[in-house]
Design a protein around this nucleic acid. Structure first.
Lengths: 194, 194
DNA sequence: CAATTGACTGACCGGTCGGTCAATTGTATT
DNA sequence: AATACAATTGACCGACCGGTCAGTCAATTG
């Protein structure tokens, strides 16, 4: 344990990792205590109970996600270029924080509506951007913004989360991330242009 | 419990449901015993241990998936029509078997390469189909078959698995499944055509 | 200085876990 | 009816679960 962080932070770090790697039920409080080099009692002292620790971890991931997604919407005149840049930014974010995608996957399986609440504003920003581009004739009028954003988010998240599966299909797309991203972006951009 | 099925089948049915709904660690053997109206001992008698029961459930889902995916490749002269039909067939299959998509999601989070092994032959069929269409000039030469198939699979699976999230964004896409599918297919088809 | 507080610990709790085992019950065969 | 075997049960086990409790200690406050 790094002496420059508090024990409470060490507990949270351990929980962030373990919960995202293995899910709520598989991770015992004793496992978190061992990884953070404290006793179980301290975890209950700081966090109340296991459920509240999970909630804290969830809030942490959601906040991390929400704060970094704001860089998605950089200054960029051309809406199409902005959409492409947003996709690449999002890919790089998940690549550097793969546990975020895993944690969201666990949240989905728990039917946790919290993530949808969390990123609705971001979704609405993206929707606004797409609709603006449609009014300018840069994107086809038939494109549903929700479906487009869902497709891009799912494609990238699952590239990381379901790697164990897709790598059996075609190992080449995991040798070089640009291979996947270039093809993925080309497919979607062609799909939205008039 | 339905008297026309054996107790072993009742155990497997309960496990199929509970494991796909809640994952391995969250479901205890006692829960499965209660739902199948047998004692825990009988579960160990028939299935050895919890891990082997999970493996049996996994094999069941994988077989169900593999057998029904063969209908994806119906007789259809036009490759583009076949691709669209395959997508709609896949959507209807997951719609009627949502636990399959959930189970695969758990398998991905467990880094289980088994699902990739399982559906590699199906993937290769789809890849062959796409390459044939490319040779006929019906699909753009720049399209990577792996990326296309991944995009379609992910889009449909996550429509169901991540419903708790996306429904917060736009409830309209869940009021009528055709809304989502028509837009999703149109996006991808436009993306692949020359 | 004494009182208070929060961080932290080790011992302990009741309950549940996956699993074992001997006894009983059910079924098929001779 | 007797026998053999499989299915099934209920009691039990040690390990582990989430959590509580009494106590210690250092820092802060009055």
């Amino acid at each position: 344990m790094n002496p420059s962080i508090t024990k409470k932070e060490a507990i949270l770090d351990a929980a962030l990792t373990l919960f995202a790697e293995h899910g709520f039920a598989h991770v015992s409080v004793a496992m978190i205590a061992e990884q953070s080099d404290v006793t179980k009692s301290l975890i209950f002292h700081h966090f109340g109970n296991k459920e509240q620790l999970w909630d804290e971890v969830k809030q942490h991931y959601f906040n991390q996600y929400a704060q970094t997604q704001e860089i998605l919407f950089e200054q960029e005149k051309n809406p199409l270029t902005l959409i492409e840049k947003s996709m690449r930014n999002y890919f790089n974010f998940i690549k550097q924080n793969p546990l975020v995608a895993r944690f969201f996957s666990y949240a989905h399986l728990d039917n946790d509506a919290g993530c949808g609440d969390l990123d609705r504003p971001l979704f609405q920003q993206g929707e606004f951007l797409i609709k603006s581009a449609q009014e300018q004739g840069l994107i086809r009028p038939g494109i549903n913004p929700s479906v487009l954003i869902m497709t891009f988010i799912n494609g990238i998240n699952q590239y990381f989360v379901a790697r164990c599966r897709f790598e059996q299909w075609d190992a080449a797309i995991y040798r070089d991330d640009d291979t996947f991203m270039n093809h993925f972006i080309a497919l979607l951009m062609k799909g939205i242009k008039p």
